[in-house]
Design a protein around this nucleic acid. Structure first.
Lengths: 143, 143
DNA sequence: GGGGTAATTAGACAATGTCTAGATATTGTC
DNA sequence: GACAATATCTAGACATTGTCTAATTACCCC
């Protein structure tokens, strides 16, 4: 990750760059996502935003995450059928998913290369290629 | 797809090969999956199995799909955060997902090649590599 | 055919995410 | 700053997908 300082001003600028009005709640949510740089679920974000004082509702967290996705500020990661994770890193990269622990790790895009992409039907364009490498402990899950 | 006839006897043999007792409900569910060779959600399978006469409960459909997955008879496909799709083709291959229509198409495994897999942490093994190519209509979604 | 085990069932429950209508905040204009 | 217009936020109802439980039913083997 490039070293970016995510103070209040940087976050406001970041939202403005993506045509998002920087409200208090949106800044709180952006702060949680970008300061940790981790892959978090809506639930985890809701909990962290309201850690000290309850100040953001569930609806706002979901609305905001969907808005951030639409505007290209963050990305969805679909690895666990039970919930969506959100990735503050939108530069091209792929993911390793530990099916025992649930841990998600990045793979740099320049490491992984895909060749042999088939022709798409006429009029279709590629929106993105998601790669998930599922790993587990060789000895089996810890019980 | 290899041409396989999925009559009752073949399906019974298929389940037995995977250590699954061939009950009436399991055969119905296997029939829906293998005769169409499509990617179906639990809901779609439940509806198709009970199309003529209601004979299989929701719980059984979910239990059976999970059992089939565990025993390697079918595979989960995670492309839509709202529901899991099940793929009767377990040979190595990847998927194209049309984000406008929801359509899922196979890519033959020998077409797509991935190079540059990073080293895994000690004691970890790869369970599988899932690739999803998200496509859409170049002109934007039909409204 | 009887007894033991495995499978199935209806419906309650859980988790994640969406929607609605009313309240609150923000912004631009004077 | 005050106002109006617009955008955002909220609580809680709702929807959907999937799991669990306790009781019933089917299957299998002797």
């Amino acid at each position: 990750m490039k070293a970016i300082s995510y103070d209040r001003k940087s976050l406001i600028a970041l939202l403005r760059q993506h045509d998002i009005a920087p409200t208090h709640q949106r800044l709180e949510i952006a702060h949680v996502l970008f300061s940790r740089g981790q892959h978090l679920s809506a639930d985890q974000i809701l909990a962290q935003v309201n850690e000290r004082h309850a100040e953001t509702s569930k609806a706002t967290v979901y609305n905001t995450l969907n808005l951030f996705c639409q505007r290209g500020l963050i990305r969805e990661v679909l690895v666990d059928p039970r919930r969506v994770f959100y990735d503050p890193n939108t530069r091209p990269h792929q993911h390793i998913y530990n099916i025992d622990t649930g841990e998600i790790t990045d793979i740099a895009a320049d490491a992984l290369q895909v060749t042999g992409m088939p022709e798409l039907p006429a009029g279709m364009v590629t929106e993105g290629v998601d790669i998930i490498v599922r790993i587990r402990n060789a000895a089996g899950p810890v019980r």
